[in-house]
Write a protein that binds this DNA or RNA. Structure first.
Lengths: 125, 125
DNA sequence: ACAGTTTTGACAACCGTTTTCATTTTCCTT
DNA sequence: AAGGAAAATGAAAACGGTTGTCAAAACTGT
């Protein structure tokens, strides 16, 4: 498992946002790559197992993947129509999470925050 | 939409944890209720629309529901050790989400916020 | 080149969820 | 009560994303 796995990883690294498996598959195909959807799924699984990509679920239950930027901590604003994703910083949210956790006696906390909406170019269409 | 909707809500209120639609359906059937799976799904949707239950996705993409203790919008603080869940209100987060979305031209937004940690009684054990 | 293992991909199977649609129930008006 | 429109129901089919199957193709070391 290497050829296509690297290809998928590459696509993801070039992307700035979360991408779905089908989405990646479509892009690779129209780029002329001869790869199967199954292989894309397998590559994503493997990459996730290796901790090289992370995955989250949209409101609709679709899995979307992203190469780990691992930079700063930030959250995502995802268009539920076209999948476009903006990275947004949320210092307020971080503080809120810390405070609320402390208040309830919870320690060692982590949090997930994802905002879904319809982006400007998809609105009204 | 009332008979079965109340029944589903009742099941949820008696539950202490998140339940899947299929799970609820199975319980109701073995309790002798003559209800269809479709109706369970519709009841859950309606209850969710009314803000009486909240829904989240498991890692596997399955939707799980839970009766809201409070009728207001809120988030969860989940103990990663024992699974204990506290409902927490997050007006700050709501405002933050709205603001950030508007700033990027996103409309019609929803958000998921889940905070994981180790609760007081699990700490130090 | 050769045998053995791994990877691949078309296709079918899966599973949770939604849609369809005909039937039943509920509710309102006489 | 009776009649009729509107809402609710449920069995079965459709759907969409994901995973399994399995034979063919691509690597591996000898």
């Amino acid at each position: 498992m290497s050829r296509s796995r690297d290809a998928v990883h590459e696509i993801l690294r070039r992307s700035e946002s979360f991408r779905s498996a089908q989405d990646i598959f479509t892009e690779m195909r129209s780029d002329g790559a001869k790869i199967g959807l199954t292989t894309v799924y397998r590559a994503l699984q493997a990459l996730n197992d290796d901790g090289r990509v992370d995955v989250l679920r949209t409101d609709e239950g679709e899995a979307v993947y992203r190469a780990c930027a691992s930079d700063l901590h930030h959250h995502h604003l995802v268009c539920r129509r076209c999948g476009r994703t903006e990275e947004v910083a949320g210092p307020d949210v971080e503080r809120w999470a810390e405070a609320i956790a402390a208040e309830h006696g919870f320690a060692d906390i982590t949090h997930t925050v994802e905002v879904f909406g319809t982006c400007a170019s998809c609105t009204g269409r």
